[in-house]
Amino acid sequence: MSCAALMASGSLWRLCFGAPRPLSAYGRRISVRFCSSRMTLDNINRAAVDRIIRVDHAGEYGANRIYAGQMAVLGRTSVGPVIQKMWDQEKEHLKKFSELMVAFRVRPTVLMPFWNVVGFALGAGTALLGREGAMACTVAVEESIAHHYNNQIRTLMDEDPEKYKELLQVIKKFRDEELEHHDIGLEHDAELAPAYAVLKKAIQAGCSAAIYLSERF
């Protein structure tokens, strides 16, 4: 059973937090612990964690839509299996952040419908340029995401590396996999895409805007 399904049934809550705990007489929620981590709903920097989980969920959702767009155009070509393998990893990333949103009660960005359309359009549009165009998009996006993950790692390390150990492990693992996708893109001739430097710069500018908006809205 998935983590989200367990949460819906109440099993995940009992597994991670113990029996459901009511508000105190003063309306203050009693501290609860997230699985084996030192992170609890009361002792974490809620603003920072909410921002991190929200934007990472949005980013992985957008990446999934990009790969969906690429597969719609190139899925039956020789590069299709390469794209599918990267997409499968992005699906796992999205699943994990969806579970973390439930566990930490983080709302998704209100821009999800927008990223749904824009992500697919970006993936399909660059794929129409051919394999090189799709891989140029992969390089640009994954480089931006890895840079963003590195910023989050520094933030959590400055806060308390032991307390945020489990979240740090997740982010570091996904960062490394995004960098693998970046390298795969380069290995499959991303730099041969038409106007590669311009295309990469434009996509990364869009990624920066998406990160800024998803963190806040």
Rank of each mutant, 00 (worst) to 15 (best):
C35P: 11
G59P: 02
E99P: 01
I66D: 04
A146I: 05
Q89L: 03
Y196N: 01
F104W: 10
L179S: 08
M86C: 15
R14W: 12
E132S: 01
N150G: 15
H188Q: 14
N64G: 15
I30Y: 09
H57P: 00
I153V: 15
N43S: 03
R107L: 08
A134P: 14
E180R: 10
W13K: 08
F174E: 14
E159Y: 11
S31Y: 05
M135S: 09
D183V: 08
G185C: 07
H188N: 15
T77M: 09
I30S: 11
Q169D: 15
A4K: 10
C207D: 12
V32K: 07
A4G: 04
Y61V: 00
S36Y: 02
A72D: 13
E177I: 07
Q89I: 06
C35T: 05
N116T: 06
R14S: 11
R33C: 07
R51A: 13
I153C: 05
Y212T: 03
E143M: 06
V110F: 06
G123S: 13
Q169H: 12
V117L: 14
E191W: 02
K200Y: 00
R216W: 03
F174R: 07
K85R: 14
A190K: 04
A190E: 01
L41V: 02
N45A: 05
A195L: 13
R21L: 13
A205K: 13
L213A: 06
L111S: 01
F120M: 07
M112C: 01
K172D: 10
G69T: 14
A25L: 08
R175E: 14
G119T: 04
T77F: 03
W115N: 02
A210D: 00
T155W: 01
Q204N: 11
L186T: 09
V141Y: 01
A72F: 10
I66Q: 14
K201W: 04
L168E: 05
I83F: 00
D56W: 08
M101R: 11
D158K: 11
I53V: 14
G75I: 12
F114G: 04
V79S: 11
V139N: 01
A210G: 02
L186G: 04
G133H: 02
A19Y: 08
D160T: 12
E132M: 02
Y196V: 00
G75D: 12
Q89M: 03
T138E: 03
P81N: 13
Q169M: 12
T138N: 06
F17Y: 09
N116F: 05
G62N: 07
D189V: 04
V141G: 01
Y26A: 11
A5S: 08
H93M: 10
E180K: 13
Y61T: 03
V141E: 01
N151C: 05
G18W: 11
Y149R: 09
S37K: 03
A195P: 10
S214F: 02
K96M: 09
E215Q: 14
A127W: 03
L94P: 03
F217T: 09
F97M: 08
Y67Q: 08
V49Y: 00
F34A: 13
L213E: 00
I211V: 03
K163R: 14
E92C: 05
R29C: 04
E166P: 01
A209S: 08
M7Q: 12
S31F: 03
G75P: 02
S208G: 06
Q89S: 02
S11C: 06
N45E: 06
P113D: 10
A47T: 15
S24A: 12
A5Q: 12
P22A: 10
G59L: 07
T138D: 00
L128V: 12
E60Q: 04
A205R: 08
